[in-house]
Amino acid sequence: MRLLTHNMLSSNIKGVTNGFPLRIEIEKVVEKPVDFNPEFLRNMFPKIEWKALVNAARSMGYVELPEEVEPSTLYSEDFLHKFHHALLELHLEEGALVCPETGRRFPVSKGIPNMLLHEDEV
């Protein structure tokens, strides 16, 4: 699971109002190289919750992302490479995503999060 996916997932349990971002529990992280595509990154940037990405990357041990991003930064090659690495190349292979409100764990196995709910959570 890429951190891009983490950035798009919220706790879907009935009644939860503040289900984003999910906390990351790590058992295994893998890195997979992806072709660098600055245009894709600039298109994706406005769709990303930046703070959630910075914290998610940190929890995976990657601390290179800046806290704040100025519009001009989006044309810095150095910044885009860091953004690229955090967004697409770091994978949570085994672990869990945890609902920030209820503590419910959504397991991640072989890189696939299981967001299926129990009957009493729907």
Partner: peptide, 30 residues
């Protein structure tokens, strides 16, 4: 989702997979 992962890998392409009911968990942010 596991079979899909194997099919994607066999073709050398990537998609992010989520085991969920339609889009549950994605609706807010997507």
């Amino acid at each position: 989702v596991k079979v899909t992962r194997e099919t994607l890998e066999a073709h050398g392409v990537h998609a992010e997979l989520i085991n969920t009911n339609i889009t549950s968990g994605l609706e807010k942010r997507l």
